[in-house]
Nucleic acid binder design. Structure first.
Lengths: 222, 222
DNA sequence: AATTAATTAAAACGTTTGTTTGAATCATAC
DNA sequence: GTATGATTCAAACAAACGTTTTAATTAATT
């Protein structure tokens, strides 16, 4: 049950990042101690402060390491779509796939740690710790703006505020799909042991259904 | 900026529950100290252990206090629908409203604390702390089972596993809609200052769109 | 009014927390 | 080999944590 890694597994810095990433998912930021991280990484307690400065800076580096790459791929995909389409509008489903599909494919990478990170990311959107949310917002700002602009262009007849909200809802559905699977398992018994590609398919059709839904008026007592 | 409450505001027990609820949302469970709670509640440090036994039991009581009522209303609404429909099938939109709409209406109650609690609940589904998730699962078990059964009956042609997943997605979208509003604000600038009833309307149409979406097959490179 | 129970108060308990320090070890260059 | 810089190590730091204890106070009962 001791997940501590052999010391030869990459340099100390990387081992610390990997250990921290895993423990943050399991126990949260506050619930994970410096001793827990360095212990699992096979490093000395002081190594975190030496390599990263502080626990807070370590947390930021855990995110930056993967998030930069994720958003780079997203924007590259979007750029491909824009070039391919030329003057013509892009299908919303393609935009949604470039953003959410890319994340889901990263989440499907269990061995490389993408799965662990996406679980962490999903639950961090609503994390109370101010500095984490602020940091995430900065890292995300450009990417989200570009994708929202693309959706506005792709859906010129839909109110922009409505698109904004639905983008938000889609973020929520995706985050829970990745981060909170065990929560549903606890409630409902168990899922059939799912391969992640089916999750992609399932979630994408749900997201597009929500995105395209009519703006029906649901009062407070329908 | 000191949110500490006057001592006359209810009995000590209730003041502690209110203070804890608010602080858990702002700082998380681990990030909230006993001293912080009792300080805000205007009570002595030992009061939590006296009234609740431990911090862990306090957390459980914070949830139990509101969750029992929420699920009672949900099941009552479902029962109404079932009686009203008799042998006929119930419209899925009504079932969805009985579950998610009820939660959203509780979240719209800012003064009574429902809003605070729903934000807390939303972010707790994905909380790493094992005992909280286990406790939530137990509190939710019966209610979720009843609603899933109702959806199975209302949508006899749809694969049950698919309904299960979409219920999961809907939970995610709703939780983020309530708990993570500030996250999106940080990213996108700001929303128009929204009255909660429009959120109900917006989210419900999104949820139903997702629930009814065709099971299109989205491969990994569409 | 006396007695019992329930609640609040202040102080201290032993752990655990993140961080810092100064010496020891390692790698690399001259 | 010796010097230089980077890294690792064991040890210690004050601060904050949840909990417990014992005394003081309040409320209820007889």
């Amino acid at each position: 049950m001791n997940g501590s890694l052999a010391k030869g597994n990459g340099d100390t810095r990387s081992r610390i990042l990997d250990a921290a990433e895993a423990l943050f998912v399991e126990q949260g930021f506050d619930g994970t101690s410096m001793r827990g991280i360095t212990g699992r990484a096979g490093a000395n307690l002081a190594a975190i402060n030496y390599h990263f400065g502080s626990k807070e800076q370590l947390i930021q580096e855990v995110f930056r390491r993967r998030l930069t790459e994720l958003n780079r791929i997203r924007l590259a995909r979007l750029h491909e779509l824009e070039v391919e389409a030329g003057e013509a509008p892009i299908k919303p489903s393609r935009i949604v796939d470039a953003f959410f599909g890319t994340a889901l494919r990263m989440a499907a990478d269990v061995e490389g740690g993408g799965h662990t990170f996406m679980r962490l990311l999903g639950r961090t959107y609503t994390d109370p710790q101010g500095f984490v949310r602020k940091f995430l917002a900065e890292e995300y700002a450009e990417c989200v703006e570009r994708f929202l602009a693309a959706l506005y262009r792709a859906l010129p007849d839909v109110d922009r505020n409505e698109i904004l909200w639905r983008f938000h809802f889609m973020m929520g559905a995706m985050s829970y799909a990745i981060a909170g699977t065990d929560a549903l398992q606890l409630v409902t018994g168990k899922f059939d042991d799912e391969d992640p590609s089916r999750l992609v398919s399932r979630l994408m059709s749900f997201l597009l259904g929500g995105l395209r839904a009519p703006l029906a008026d649901f009062g407070s007592s329908p």
